[in-house]
């Protein structure tokens, strides 16, 4: 009889070790990063050709007026919109504005929520309760009516373009940090009661050490999994506000802004180039963020 015993066992193990796939990024993350990369490429490189004039002025350089809702041609790659502005370049510049806006908002919400959530989670007791009450109060304020009020105020006041964007950012973030605060506080509470924290405490580590070296590393993955979804949500809200005319306004282009072409059914029917590219870009960027979030969540679950 053949001797199949010991040699077979060990050699099989060796062969199988080579078969183990070590995938660092799963498919969703890869696609997400890829899409995001392309969008960023478009948004960063195209405006560098300094065609600012194309998106803001209604006339050509030599003084002739532009056609409104002109179909795509070599001169205007994606046609012109209701005011004769080139859509292609508006997409690129608007992309910058929208993405920067989203980024700043999410960061400031994260910052605020992080501080409040951490303080509430760590100190506990009375301060925790008060902070949570405050969070609840901010949570209760309905978002759209608030934005309408802000737009109403800005109507009256007429601040400069940049100031308008800043005000919008501030209002967004001041009323949007509640989600992060809740999440961070919840995670800290979860971890605080686990045994390894008690072990760290009894072994004499100072409080700050415990916080930085033990608690935060456990919490970070959870938070990182949520951030891309938040990006996507803020982007969609921004586009909704732009549609209603309450967000970033003329003359600053933004993706939400450009979608106000959809208020008119005639435009929708006859000039699809006015809104479909914008919608596709929004879809791609939002899906990229969403995929990043999902991929991060999957990776977390695998590690658990």
């Amino acid at each position: 009889m053949k001797k199949i015993h010991s040699n077979n066992y060990y050699s099989k193990l060796k062969k199988d070790k080579n078969k183990i796939k070590k995938e660092k990024l799963n498919l969703k993350l890869k696609i997400g990063f890829l899409l995001l990369f392309f969008v960023l490429l478009f948004v960063i490189i195209v405006p560098m050709t300094d065609k600012v004039k194309d998106i803001q002025y209604f006339t050509n350089e030599n003084g002739s007026s532009r056609l409104v809702y002109d179909f795509p041609s070599f001169k205007h790659l994606l046609g012109t919109d209701a005011h004769g502005r080139d859509i292609f370049y508006r997409l690129a510049f608007g992309g910058r504005v929208t993405l920067a806006f989203t980024f700043v908002i999410v960061l400031s919400e994260l910052f605020l929520g992080f501080i409040i959530g951490s303080v509430a989670g760590f100190t506990g007791g009375f301060i925790d309760r008060i902070l949570m009450q405050i969070t609840d109060m901010f949570n209760c304020i309905p978002f759209l009516p608030l934005m309408m009020l802000t737009a109403g105020i800005m109507d009256r006041f007429n601040p400069g373009d940049f100031q308008r964007i800043v005000i919008l950012c501030v209002v967004y973030s001041v009323f949007g940090w509640t989600g992060f605060a809740r999440l961070i506080r919840g995670e800290i509470l979860n971890v605080k009661n686990k045994d390894f924290i008690a072990a760290a405490k009894t072994s004499g580590l100072s409080n700050i050490r415990i916080v930085v070296n033990h608690i935060y590393p456990v919490i970070f993955p959870q938070i990182i999994a949520v951030i891309p979804f938040h990006f996507a949500r803020v982007m969609l809200t921004e586009s909704a506000l732009g549609f209603l005319g309450l967000g970033i306004r003329y003359p600053n282009p933004s993706w939400g802004n450009m979608l106000d072409a959809m208020r008119n059914l005639f435009v929708i029917k006859n000039y699809p180039f006015a809104y479909i590219p914008v919608a596709i870009l929004i879809l791609i960027t939002t899906s990229a963020f969403w995929l990043l979030g999902e991929g991060a969540k999957e990776k977390l679950q695998k590690n658990k």
Partner: peptide, 22 residues
């Protein structure tokens, strides 16, 4: 689900209007 979540509501609405009405 991804597609449905990532499109703004009014876009879906307008497309519906276009398709089903016009």
């Amino acid at each position: 689900t991804l597609l449905c979540m990532c499109l703004p509501t009014f876009f879906i609405g307008s497309v519906m209007q276009l398709l089903l009405f016009s």
